[in-house]
Design a protein around this nucleic acid. Structure first.
Lengths: 324, 324
DNA sequence: TTGTAGGCGTTATCAT
DNA sequence: ATGATAACGCCTACAA
């Protein structure tokens, strides 16, 4: 690997001059610039980012912590994040926390070691401990770490309301809500929205807590069999909805005539099924972009206008609900 | 951020001594070690990895290039890769090539800039150009870049044979093969295995090329409708299989009685459908681990025993094929 | 307009 | 057993 010194030698100038041309900074004669450029070209010189980072105390790297990478929602988020970081000439170091805060805090250390410029945390667990005395900008997706740390997430409360209103409008009398772990703020928000509407309208409902990563199919089957009079189902993820689907089919209940289903996320698979799944869509594209751009602003010293941004969700009506 | 110098000052020793204790290298008195450790603790000192990397010319970072991140197969691969790199105290910089070799070659430059220690490339396009004069160890997944660059992939040829044999054994007379782009080596291998068996047994088959990332549903529907006599379907991905599924259902063909289906990959969703999908399973866990460990060997100077490792595939018989 | 030199935080080679 | 000190590759006052 050629260094800036090699270039300087070949171009018969000092390293300072070379540095000026590669950074387009300070005065430099057109002719000498050409010579330098020529030398750079000839040697296939690429500036060493580590040396640069060491000096500038910033690395053009963004750390990303995710609870896992194999669920579609997270994978798409990651894709969007990578997209926009690259666009701004940043790169991402990706870490899988597995929802384990021990791992998380190790990653935080690693990020410091590498002079990471900013951190995006997608997480469920919300431990505030280590984040406080970390002087690296952070933005979180899908949960609030503290009032002081900016976040972005879907309007989960609205999502819950949207689903409840739809189900109510089509005449459901008894609804099953298969939700995520109720300790999660996102789940709580959805539930609150959902319950509020249903209580208002005096519609009966039941909540069942399930794991997001791999919801237990048996629990879903059991709940469905035990409630043959249920005529509406709301799931906190599309994957849960697919499970509900299978259970319903196995006992010959027609969808949406006997039972309606609404999912959450709008993953790609959602419209591969037949009947196609009605679902609450999360705008992952927007969330990812907002996270990256806000973080970059933070890195450059400008505070976000909104500390906790809430992104609109949409009810995507497909074939598992009746027309209202 | 405290530096090694701060620690040295606080412990009343030289930076050299501090360096010795944090690296467990060279002689250092027990008492002074304690003092240093104490100082480290008090200052919450973490060694700066960039400075280290600069000196050692290695960064403990692995670069990962993937064609995209939202398909389940790739996402799971990434998860496994992250898992094992972390286990060996390495970290990953992830880049999305979008199957674009221009982007790929930019990433290669970036990797050099960061003194990345090794590269894992999951890719379809195989351009050898830039890789040659790159003196960073590389391993590729799912395709051979050149004879000299180690790779790992599934036994795609065997996978094709497995599917063909199963379909033949259950009495299929006319088979549709929905495959990936036939320019891809993986697809070619599967086709060769598949065709070989079928030709031998004089079974009729048709190939249809589709995109992996988002296979055109209409093409699948069209092929299925135009071939009402087809009684077997082999798909190069489970997602394609799901599409075939829907098409078949829409024209009231029973699975597996009228038509059998075999997919490829064994993604998590594959057993969420009913009937559950029979498929050729790729051992992503093994592939990912092998890639990481072989790359680490390469980094440490030991050549792999096998230049191009082929991983076993399995036929997972579920409900979309008849018992044979 | 250009060059000199010190420093970013570590490690490793010398002496001592 | 410990301490100076010269790298690693780059950037930026400051001087010229």
């Amino acid at each position: 690997m050629p260094t800036i010194k090699d270039v300087a030698n070949l171009a018969h100038v000092s390293v300072a001059t070379v540095s000026r041309v590669i950074n387009n900074k300070g005065y430099v004669n057109e002719e000498t610039r050409d010579m330098v450029l020529h030398a750079i070209d000839e040697l296939h010189y690429i500036p060493n980012e580590l040396a640069r980072s060491l000096f500038k105390k910033q690395s053009r790297m963004i750390g990303v912590i995710m609870p896992h990478m194999t669920s579609y929602y997270f994978a798409e988020l990651l894709e969007v994040i990578e997209n926009f970081t690259i666009e701004h000439d940043y790169h991402i170091m990706v870490c899988n926390s597995k929802d384990d805060w021990m791992r998380e805090s190790i990653f935080l250390k690693v990020f410091q070691q590498y002079n990471i410029d900013g951190i995006i945390i997608i997480s469920n667990t919300s431990r505030i401990t280590d984040y406080q005395n970390l002087n690296i900008p952070i933005i979180t997706i899908d949960h609030k770490l503290s009032e002081m740390i900016p976040s972005v997430s879907s309007k989960n409360y609205e999502g819950g309301k949207l689903a409840a209103n739809k189900l109510a409008a089509t005449g459901c009398k008894k609804i099953l809500h298969f939700r995520g772990p109720s300790v999660l703020p996102t789940v709580q928000a959805r539930s609150r929205g959902f319950d509020t509407v249903l209580n208002q309208k005096n519609i009966i409902y039941q909540n069942h807590d399930l794991d997001f990563k791999s919801p237990d199919p048996d629990a879903i089957w059991k709940a469905i069999k035990e409630n043959p009079d249920a005529d509406g189902i709301f799931c906190d993820s599309d994957v849960m909805a697919i499970h509900a689907f299978q259970a319903l089919e196995s006992i010959n209940r027609r969808i949406p005539d006997d039972v309606e289903i609404i999912g959450f996320d709008n993953i790609e698979m959602a419209h591969l099924f037949s009947p196609k799944l009605t679902t609450i869509s999360q705008n992952k594209e927007f969330i990812g972009r907002y996270a990256v751009e806000t973080l970059l602003d933070l890195i450059n010293g400008t505070q976000p206008k909104k500390m906790h941004y809430q992104v609109d969700v949409d009810l995507i009506e497909r074939e598992t609900t009746k027309k209202s």
